[in-house]
């Protein structure tokens, strides 16, 4: 049997997003774009062409005025643990799950742009570079690009990396301090850090000391399309049944509300 919690032979980085705290402000998206050198096109309104790693989805409870409610789902890559759909279809081995971090990589220089992974991903977490990044001569907008993330060329797929370079950054810092292991919070993603509502928690799901592993067991925790069996490492929290119900497809009567359950 797989040992879920125990001495860490490697880590399993994951995220818990509290949808009750999320205000839908979009700072996570902007922080992600700024951190990871996402290219911006003059027209970003074609959402099938717009490059986003972290994307906000707006949902409503569908009720009439004045009982309408909106809520938001911030959606990074789920870094699926099991039969990772994109990894299993990639013909170029441009994406793989690192068993020691649980992070699903994406190597742009290896990607051949077939977009099979995009078709396979149940979460639409991957976007394709139809064009080269828009950095026209004379504007000088390329000056804000970070050297920690390699800018992409056209014809490749990209996706959220859980800010893998921040893991390397944290490790590098730890090495200077003669440490090999990271403390909780030393490695967090840009969206986690940026969220003004502290709605995102990031850490090692395998480490019972980490807040994420505790939150992931909350009765209000759920994952998107959980029953596909992809074991996403991104969990959501919501006390609202209508929000939780949107996380998967249910037959009538199948969904079990937990509004009566007390939080642990």
């Amino acid at each position: 049997m797989e040992k879920k919690h125990g001495p860490a032979k490697g880590n399993s980085y994951g995220m818990v997003i509290d949808l009750d705290k999320c205000t839908g402000c979009g700072t996570c998206m902007v922080a992600c774009a700024a951190e990871n050198n996402l290219a911006v096109r003059p027209d970003e309104s074609d959402k099938q062409r717009s490059i986003t790693w972290m994307r906000l989805y707006k949902v409503t409870n569908g009720k009439d005025f004045p009982y309408t409610e909106v809520s938001y789902f911030p959606r990074p890559c789920m870094h699926c643990d099991h039969h990772t759909p994109c990894v299993s279809v990639c013909p170029a081995t441009a994406t793989e799950t690192d068993p020691h971090t649980g992070i699903v990589s994406q190597i742009y220089t290896r990607c051949i742009g077939c977009r099979y992974c995009m078709a396979a991903c149940p979460y639409h977490a991957r976007t394709f570079n139809w064009w080269d990044g828009y950095f026209p001569k004379g504007k000088g907008i390329e000056r804000y690009l970070s050297p920690e993330v390699s800018p992409r060329m056209r014809g490749v797929v990209e996706k959220c990396t859980f800010c893998h370079h921040r893991l390397m950054r944290a490790k590098t810092q730890a090495y200077t301090e003669d440490r090999r292991e990271l403390e909780e919070g030393e490695y967090i993603t840009a969206c986690t850090e940026a969220c003004p509502a502290q709605a995102i928690t990031f850490g090692d799901l395998k480490n019972p000391e980490h807040k994420v592993s505790r939150l992931a067991k909350s009765p209000y925790a759920f994952r998107l399309l959980e029953r596909l069996g992809t074991e996403p490492k991104v969990y959501y929290l919501s006390t609202k049944d209508w929000v939780r119900k949107l996380g998967d497809n249910y037959l009538p009567g199948e969904f079990k509300p937990v509004s009566t359950v007390k939080a642990g």
Partner: peptide, 10 residues
Amino acid sequence: PPHLNKTIFD
């Protein structure tokens, strides 16, 4: 800033 255009829904 243009990054925000990504956050505007269609």
